[in-house]
Amino acid sequence: MSSALTDLFVHPIVQAPMAGGVSVPQLAGAVAEAGGLGFLAAGYKTADGMYQEIKQLRGITGRPFGVNLFMPQPEYPGASTGSTGAADAAPPYGAAVEVYAHQLAGEVTWYDTELGDPDSGRDDGYDAKLAVLLDNPVPVVSFHFGVPSPDVLDSLRRAGTFTLVTATTADEALAVQRAGADAVIVQGVEAGGHQGTHRDNPEADGSAVGLLSLLAQVRETVDLPLVAAGGIMRGSQIAAVLAAGASAAQLGTAFLATPESGAHALHKQALTNPLFVRTELTRAFSGRPARGLVNRFLREHGPYAPAAYPEVHHLTSPLRKKAATSGDAQGMALWAGQGHRMARELPAGELVAVLADEIAAARAALLDGGEAS
Rank of each mutant, 00 (worst) to 15 (best):
T166S: 15
Y76K: 14
K268M: 08
V352T: 03
A365S: 11
G231L: 07
A244S: 13
L57M: 06
T316D: 02
G35R: 03
L319Y: 03
Y100P: 06
R219F: 02
P139M: 12
A87L: 14
G206K: 08
D48G: 10
G245F: 05
Q103C: 14
V184N: 08
G38M: 05
I232C: 09
T282M: 09
A179F: 02
A159C: 09
Y100T: 01
V176T: 04
P274K: 09
A240L: 11
G327D: 10
H198D: 06
A4N: 13
A257Q: 12
A249D: 02
P202F: 07
V184C: 10
D205N: 15
G292T: 04
A191Q: 02
L133E: 00
P77R: 08
L212P: 00
D151R: 15
R291H: 04
P64M: 10
D154M: 07
A372T: 11
A16Y: 00
G302N: 14
L27Y: 03
Q338M: 12
E53N: 12
K321W: 00
L367F: 08
D123I: 07
D117R: 11
W335I: 03
L153R: 07
H198A: 13
A343V: 04
D368F: 03
P74E: 07
V24H: 04
E345N: 12
A204T: 14
R219Y: 02
A105F: 05
G106F: 06
F276P: 01
A263M: 10
D48S: 11
V140G: 02
A96P: 02
Y111V: 11
G262N: 10
E220N: 15
A79Y: 00
H340T: 04
T279H: 08
A290D: 07
T197F: 05
A101L: 09
A343T: 08
K45Y: 06
P72G: 11
A216Y: 01
V147Y: 01
P259K: 11
H264R: 07
A4D: 13
G287C: 03
G331A: 13
A128E: 14
L40W: 00
Y309Q: 09
G36Q: 04
A240C: 09
P289Q: 12
F276D: 02
L319C: 09
R199Y: 06
R157H: 14
Q26D: 15
F297C: 07
